[in-house]
């Protein structure tokens, strides 16, 4: 087992290197520069922009820049952000709590909601509850978050004035009023994310359960006289866990990828909002840091999922 993990970790090094080269190359080949916002500001002539490009080292060919980035990363230096001229790592760390608070909380809520709904929908297949859950998941799947988000905003913020449009990231959790304000501003973005994520998880749980419900061992258990509830929860559910665990484990890194659209829409200063503004501003060091951390988490969760298979299913062996 530990041998297996060691091999996998070793294998992930070239994977991560390849990922970082690809991302870097895409960023380098994409047009635009960190000052494109000021392109038409006559106070900042083309010569100044060219000079700044040189100072940022953007004149070097991209393999040279990639090598510089990689070597400083190995020294633990993530570089400085072109647009705020301060260390990338500080900027990224500043965003983590907000993303965990909104995206992480939404994900937790989605898991807590989806698994019972999925189980119930499978056990009572084609019942009104199952039909309702199906409709709900299809809506969640097919309606994009920028639409749900805008709709919620118009109804609950503009018309009903229940929730604020502008997310206040300076709020703490110090007093009851602050906690209440936090909950109010989290309500809309969390709802948007929960609707989407619950949809996917529900369908997975349902189909995994259905696969097992028709198996012979279920009939045997029932024939032995075990209560149906116990059969479903102990036998069927445990056996259905593999696909669910895979999905959940592989989705955890996406929490750290933030929710690009939702965060941007509701002005939540999370990692997703940071990623998209950095891409728009050609802020390469920030984009690299975010996508690389994301890649590491992705590779790691893959490993965790594979290890979990062995725990959940004794038939799986690592050689």
């Amino acid at each position: 087992m530990s041998n297996y993990i060691f091999r996998r970790v070793l294998l992930s090094v070239p994977t991560l290197l390849a990922i970082s080269i690809i991302i870097f190359a895409i960023l380098a080949l994409a047009p635009g520069d960190p000052l494109s916002q000021l392109a038409l500001n006559p106070g900042i002539p083309e010569s100044t922009r060219q000079l700044i490009r040189t100072q940022f080292g953007l004149d070097d060919p991209w393999p040279v820049r990639y090598w510089k980035w990689l070597t400083s990363l190995l020294r633990g230096d993530w570089g400085f952000s072109f647009s705020s001229r301060s260390p990338v790592i500080d900027i990224v760390m500043q965003r983590v709590p907000q993303t965990l608070q909104v995206v992480g909380f939404a994900y937790l809520l989605a898991v807590v909601l989806a698994i019972p709904i999925g189980i119930l929908a499978a056990v009572r297949q084609y019942s009104w509850f199952d039909q309702l859950a199906t409709v709900f998941s299809f809506v969640g799947f097919s309606v994009p978050s920028f639409f749900t988000g805008l709709l919620l905003m118009l109804v609950f913020a503009v018309r009903l004035k229940w929730f604020p449009i502008v997310y206040d990231s300076l709020l703490g959790f110090g007093s009851a009023t602050e906690v209440l304000a936090q909950l109010r501003q989290m309500a809309m973005p969390v709802t948007v994310l929960v609707v989407q994520q619950t949809a996917a998880l529900t369908r997975f749980t349902r189909s995994a359960m259905l696969d097992n419900l028709g198996q012979n061992y279920v009939r045997t258990a029932r024939a032995k006289g075990l209560p149906y509830r116990r059969v479903v929860l102990r036998h069927v559910f445990s056996n259905s866990l593999i696909p669910i665990v895979t999905l959940v484990a592989l989705s955890i890194p996406t929490i750290f990828g933030g929710a690009i659209i939702t965060e941007n829409l509701f002005r939540v200063n999370g990692l997703g909002a940071l990623l998209i503004t950095s891409i728009n501003n050609s802020d390469t060091p920030v984009v690299m840091a975010l996508s690389f951390v994301f890649a590491v988490l992705m590779v790691f969760s893959n490993l965790v999922a594979d290890v979990m298979y062995g725990v959940l299913d004794p038939r799986v062996r690592y050689n």
């Binding site: 978050s145 805008l150 690009i260 941007n264 829409l265």
Partner: peptide, 10 residues
């Protein structure tokens, strides 16, 4: 996530 980033117009 990637496609729909500049959402506002809708």
């Amino acid at each position: 996530g990637a496609c729909a980033a500049p959402a506002p117009a809708a």
